[in-house]
């Protein structure tokens, strides 16, 4: 959960980076203010275990922002900020595999039915690993 919360903070930072770093009228600002809310939203929802798999969307969003600053005209500080923040989001994404035993083994049971709990399966214990 904390990895996704950190990504949320980074996404919010990107939303306000153009104003904070004074590159508001650049195309890079459009990228920051598009990718920022997308990363923040996805990470916020992915902080919950039931929707943790949404975090993988961040790989796509952040990849765009790792590459884009190299091709856009903007102050170096702004370019570095966008690229580094995007790399951090990439790094944070794979962590925090959810404990799906709380939810009947999760969404994958809908197609991998060997993990789908039986009709009379007992409830899972509160401290399921």
């Amino acid at each position: 959960m904390w990895f996704q919360i950190a990504s949320t903070v980074l996404g919010v930072w990107l939303m306000f980076a153009p104003a904070a770093l004074d590159h508001v009228d650049t195309t890079l600002a459009d990228f920051d203010r598009t990718i920022g809310p997308l990363v923040a939203s996805v990470s916020f929802v992915a902080a919950a275990q039931i929707s943790r798999s949404l975090r993988w969307l961040n790989l796509g969003f952040a990849a765009v922002l790792v590459v884009a600053p190299w091709f856009l005209d903007a102050p170096t500080v702004s370019q570095a900020n966008s690229c580094v923040v995007a790399l951090l989001v990439l790094a944070l994404t794979p962590w925090g595999s959810p404990d799906q035993t709380r939810y009947g083994n999760g969404w994958t049971t809908l197609w991998r039915t060997e993990d789908l709990p039986e009709w009379n399966a007992p409830r899972a214990s509160e401290d399921a690993a």
Partner: peptide, 11 residues
């Protein structure tokens, strides 16, 4: 479990 409120395998 068919009368149970908690879904099978859930907490």
């Amino acid at each position: 479990n068919t009368d149970e409120l908690v879904p099978p395998g859930w907490v």
